[in-house]
Simulated scan of single mutants.
Amino acid sequence: MEYAASFFEGRGSKWNYDSLKNFNQISTPVQHHLQRVYTTLAATVLLSAVGVYIHTLLNIGGITTSLLFVGASTWLMATPSTPQNEMKRLQLLGAAALCEGASLGTLVAHVLAFDPSIVLVAFLGSTAIFACFTGAALLAKRREYLFLGGILSSVLSVMAMMQFGSLFFGRGVFMFNVELYLGLALFVGYVLFDTQMIIERASLGDYDYIKHTLDLFMDFVAIFVRILVILTKNAGEKERKERERRKRRD
């Protein structure tokens, strides 16, 4: 990667209160680019929620919508970032968000049937985590978290091998929990890394806000899914223990 020589320059820096008032390290064009990215991200998350709602009405989520999400995302990435292609790429981003929402619809519908409040808590929790770590990346010294790229890629590879191995050896409760919590930590790390990578790329003239939005959208969805599963699992265990207590009393 062409930025590799400069990735480690900020690793020894310390966060301090003054950084809350200082965005001088981020140039005005880059700040405008970030505003565009996060505005588009908000619209993309909203479209994904519409996709979830469509699934609850029509039950369309599944392998087909997952493949459509991959197809739309791949098509978007393969389409050159030019002014002439901007609307087309925005439409592909919107289609990808709708398909991803429909794909998540099965999980969300299951949780809604169990306890609707969990979905809202998971969304608010995901938003808070995403916002906090985005803020940390924006306020940190430039390139401070870019060293995470290699670590995150290695962890992602290990998780992929674990999931592949589970096809042959099965997946126990312990391995499920490892994958769940490790995956949450992994994508929180990607929020830090991707945010600073977007800043660095924009500083070098890459203002492809649509691609950058897609990167952050995938991070957000990955965090949301894992928090949703964690909250549902914990609520289920709590309910099971409560039933056992009642049986012992009777």
Rank of each mutant, 00 (worst) to 15 (best):
A160T: 14
A78N: 00
F69Q: 05
F168L: 13
A78V: 02
G150D: 08
L148P: 09
V119S: 03
L156A: 15
I54N: 01
A136L: 04
N177C: 07
L167Q: 12
W75D: 00
G149Y: 11
F176C: 01
P116N: 08
S66N: 13
G71Y: 13
E179T: 14
L68D: 05
G125Q: 10
L146N: 05
L76H: 09
L93H: 02
T134E: 03
M162N: 14
S66P: 08
A78S: 07
L146T: 05
T65W: 06
M175H: 10
T134A: 00
A113M: 11
T56P: 06
M161I: 15
L76W: 11
F69Y: 15
I129R: 00
S157L: 15
L124K: 08
A122M: 04
Q84G: 02
F174N: 08
K88Q: 02
V188D: 01
F133A: 01
L112G: 03
W75Y: 10
S126W: 03
A128V: 07
L180S: 08
S117A: 15
A131D: 02
A96D: 09
F169Q: 12
M161W: 12
S48E: 11
S126K: 00
Y145S: 00
E100M: 14
R171G: 06
V70G: 05
L93G: 03
A95K: 06
P83E: 09
W75V: 03
V119L: 04
T106A: 11
R143W: 06
P83V: 08
M159I: 10
E100K: 11
A97G: 07
A113S: 12
F114M: 06
H110N: 15
F123G: 07
S126P: 05
A97K: 02
T134M: 01
V173N: 14
V70T: 06
F169S: 15
F176K: 08
L184I: 04
G71W: 14
